[in-house]
């Protein structure tokens, strides 16, 4: 997901300063990316170029499910990316910038939550471990 966040920043630059189309911008992102995201960006970019009349969100959906294995995305992440794709390319530069900003923020929050959850879980397991240790001791006594 950190990789996707970085891509968003690049995308914002391509849209705002270069005025590139989504298809062109994603093609460049694909070239610069070294992860599985490359395949996703490439797929979307090619689909947008070959049949621009297709539904943008559906293209992303297909791309994400096609390459889901290598991506290790959580359900929340997928939802955020699909929401992002729904608004992508539909407005002026200001709106595009906003869409990227909101998506970026949502991804960060999701990440923080996931980390908090992980911490909570690890505390719980540590607690459980401790308790079961005591239990074992009690049983042995």
């Amino acid at each position: 997901m950190a990789e996707f966040q970085r891509a968003l920043t690049e995308l914002e630059y391509s849209i705002e300063f270069m005025g590139m189309t989504i298809g062109d911008a994603l093609m460049i992102l694909a070239k610069n990316s070294e992860t599985e995201l490359e395949s996703v960006f490439l797929y979307v970019s090619e689909r947008l170029k070959s049949s621009p009349g297709s539904d943008m969100q559906k293209i992303w959906q297909r791309a994400l499910s096609k390459y889901s294995e290598g991506l290790a995305l959580k359900k929340d992440d997928v939802e955020i990316i699909l929401d992002f794709s729904k608004n992508l390319g539909t407005g002026n530069r200001e709106k595009e910038k906003n869409n990227i900003k909101v998506t970026s923020m949502r991804l960060r929050i999701a990440e923080d939550e996931a980390r908090a959850e992980l911490e909570r879980n690890s505390k719980m397991y540590r607690g459980l471990g401790f308790l079961s240790g005591i239990f074992v001791v009690i049983v042995l006594m």
Binding site: G23, M56, R93
Partner: peptide, 9 residues
């Protein structure tokens, strides 16, 4: 949207 290459901006 399509004629704007899905990039209205």
């Amino acid at each position: 949207r399509a004629i704007c290459e899905n990039s209205i901006y």
